[in-house]
């Protein structure tokens, strides 16, 4: 069967199945299990009302449990076994991993990524948001800077391969070096600094995200506070740093953490640009080196990523609960 037919059938079965499930389960609940008949009419309606939310929730909760909750435990459990998965070795995968110099490089590089990418993307996003705020063609400018968000990490990597290319007739960076009389250089092979050239790609993508959110936050600042500052004689820089930024601090933190989480998940850029060579490995790409080869080690890396993400997760949950109360 061709994949397209399979896809069409899946859409029909999937959508039909979902609609059918929700419709029929409601019907069964109301007509068969708790029919509102004379005698215990009121009680049955109440019972149906108690059960119904779970009918609505069941498919989603089942999928979430299977694909996101179970793997946390499943991955941890798998990481305690050896490569073949038949021998329990406790934290053996973790201890050999921490001793591996490639893992240490990946960990340090990832630390650099977490420091630099969210900071730069948020800063540039805020800068563009502020600069375009009162500009007549601001929306066009924002739209163009936002555009890389639609491009895949692989596509973006290819785009930047052109920029970084060794040949001065292809790569802009080497064309500039050529122009001032310097020999061409492969920026992806310069130890340590090559990491930053890879980060540029993610910053290029994520600045648009930060800009969109921060731009909305800037618009949300009460006009009176800015006007009052102007009347008091504040200059534009003071208005920005002392009036506007403090008022959108909450949003800045949200943007910052969202990008931080992303940095811990993206393996595509390193994979497509250097394949982890030249000391550019980060944790997600390090994990992919072991995927299909040593599941024990791969799950151990994944669990390390999970532990790094955990504080953000807890903070998010606390914020959400605070809001609901």
């Amino acid at each position: 069967m061709s994949p397209i037919m399979q896809g069409i059938i899946t859409i029909i079965v999937g959508v039909g199945g979902c609609v059918g499930y929700f419709y029929l389960s409601n019907l069964v609940l109301d007509k068969v299990i708790f029919p509102p008949k004379a005698g215990d009419k009121g009680r049955n309606i109440n019972r149906a009302t108690m059960v119904r939310p779970w009918l609505f929730l069941f498919p989603a909760m089942f999928a979430l449990g299977l694909y996101l909750v179970y793997p946390v435990i499943g991955s941890f459990w798998r990481s305690l076994f050896n490569r073949a998965g038949d021998e329990f070795i406790g934290f053996g995968n973790y201890s050999s991993m921490f001793a591996d110099s490639a893992f240490q490089t990946a960990f340090l590089n990832n630390f650099l990524w977490v420091l630099v990418v969210p900071a730069m993307a948020t800063f540039l996003g805020l800068l563009v948001a502020q600069l375009t705020d009162r500009l007549s063609w601001g929306n066009i400018a924002k739209s163009l800077i936002f555009m890389p968000m639609a491009i895949s990490f692989v596509g973006a990597s290819l785009i930047w391969r052109f920029v970084y290319a060794n040949n001065p007739d292809i790569g802009i960076i080497n064309a500039m070096r050529d122009f001032v009389g310097l020999a061409p250089i492969d920026v992806l092979q310069i130890p340590f600094w090559n990491n930053f050239f890879l980060m540029v790609i993610l910053i290029w993508i994520q600045t648009g995200f930060a800009m969109v959110i921060l731009s909305a936050a800037l618009r949300g600042i009460p006009e009176e506070t800015v006007e009052a500052a102007i009347i008091d004689g504040a200059n534009p820089f003071q208005i920005f740093f002392k009036i506007k930024v403090p008022q959108i601090m909450g949003t800045i933190v949200v943007v910052w953490t969202t990008i931080t989480i992303l940095v811990l998940k993206v393996f595509d850029i390193v994979y497509a640009m250097t394949g982890g060579n030249f000391e550019t490995e980060i944790l997600p790409s390090y994990m992919m080196d072991f995927m299909f080869r040593d599941d024990g080690r791969a799950t151990a890396v994944a669990f390390v990523i999970m532990i790094i993400v955990l504080p953000v997760m807890i903070w998010n949950i606390r914020q959400a609960r605070k809001e609901m109360n």
Partner: peptide, 30 residues
């Protein structure tokens, strides 16, 4: 809809937003 445990479920969804999907690769493929 009003039911006991709603708040917990919402918190769960918020928490799951940031679970790295790397965790799911090995167990789910198995």
């Amino acid at each position: 809809m009003d039911f006991p445990g709603r708040g917990v479920l919402i918190a769960l969804v918020v928490g799951l937003l940031v679970v790295p999907l790397q965790l799911a690769l090995v167990p789910m493929l198995q």
